[in-house]
Design a protein around this nucleic acid. Structure first.
Length: 302
DNA sequence: CGCCAGGTCACGC
DNA sequence: GCGTGACATGGC
């Protein structure tokens, strides 16, 4: 069994619950089956810093951002910033994944006014509707059990055209389930409005359709500075300050972006009435944001 | 069955 | 500029 050693902060559960990725499926072994772009990885803790993986190469090293020192970033937080310090202790192990910009953009356009479970469902349906099928050999480790039921309730294929969705068999992803790449821009553009609505996109369907039609030079956008890139992204339909910030933090790896959602707003109001000390934590405000989000959403009720 | 979700947009002032 | 309501749909 292939295994890797990861010394720096690395906690699969915390990354999965930090709200940046929506195609991580928890397995009963405690590991995850991760779909990213057109790749699939199975990974599970094997004690200490060791992890068993179904494959390993430069793609995954980059995906997990293994060249960034998150322990070092955490060490910049002084103990007198009580709330952030506590949040970062609780969130130790979170990393900012290097996800694909296009996938991140579409995912976070979908995310508006949706719960995280609903986002997962939506994204899987979109992949099933338009994503390239991946080969069976990409999918899993040899002795891997079925995905946890909570994450296997999606179908690999949408109901046949004309079928009543309410009547189709909601069989949970069986052995025949084929994994799918996240749809490319061209693949999304090929979908009809009806197809998009069948993915549960609701009023976001028109945003997705419009963005899929545009010419988006993502390669060139990578070279833009933070302020310019933020402005360019916010010109897109369905993209406001929050979606643009998330796209930059999670899709362009701009670690200083600090998306402000309802949870972060609560944190700022409750614990930083004088304002968050952005200057102190630059250029890693986005990492701090993830600690705050994770802690406030998963632990503190107050 | 009703509420709310990692917001955005089009209004009104 | 800032406040306000509509917006589609699925989880819980």
């Amino acid at each position: 069994m292939l295994s890797v050693n990861i010394i720096d902060d690395f906690d699969l559960d915390k990354i999965a619950e930090s709200g940046q990725c929506f195609r991580w499926h928890k397995m009963e072994t405690g590991g995850y089956r991760i779909q990213a772009g057109d790749r699939v990885l199975s990974i599970r803790p094997a004690g200490g810093h060791r992890y068993e993986v179904s494959e390993w190469d430069a793609f995954w090293e980059n995906y997990f951002d293994l060249t960034t020192d998150y322990r070092g970033i955490r060490s910049r937080i002084p103990a007198d910033d009580r709330y952030l310090y506590t949040a970062a202790e609780a969130g130790r192990g979170i990393r900012i994944l290097r996800q694909d910009p296009w996938e991140t953009l579409i995912t976070f356009i979908i995310s508006q006014r949706k719960s995280i479970p609903a986002i997962r469902t939506c994204v899987e349906k979109l992949c099933a509707a338009a994503g390239r099928p991946l080969s069976e050999t990409d999918r899993t480790m040899p002795d891997e059990p079925e995905p946890h039921p909570a994450f296997s309730g999606f179908r690999a294929f949408l109901p046949p055209e004309g079928a009543d969705p309410a009547q189709s068999d909601p069989a949970p992803c069986p052995e025949s389930c084929i994994f799918r790449a996240f749809p490319t821009q061209e693949e999304l553009a090929s979908l009809t409005m009806e197809d998009l609505l069948a993915c549960g996109l609701g009023y976001r369907a028109k945003y997705i359709a419009a963005v899929a039609e545009l010419s988006l030079p993502v390669g060139q956008m990578k070279s833009l500075d933070d302020g310019t890139l933020l402005g360019e992204l916010m010109r897109l339909p369905g993209v406001g300050i929050k979606v643009a910030s998330c796209t930059m933090l999670f899709g362009f790896h701009r670690l200083n972006l600090f998306p402000e959602d309802v949870w972060i707003s609560r944190v700022l109001k409750e614990h930083y009435p004088e304002g968050f000390p952005f200057a102190r934590y630059a250029p890693f405000c986005g990492v701090m944001q993830q600690y705050l989000f994770y802690y406030r959403r998963n632990f503190r009720k107050s």
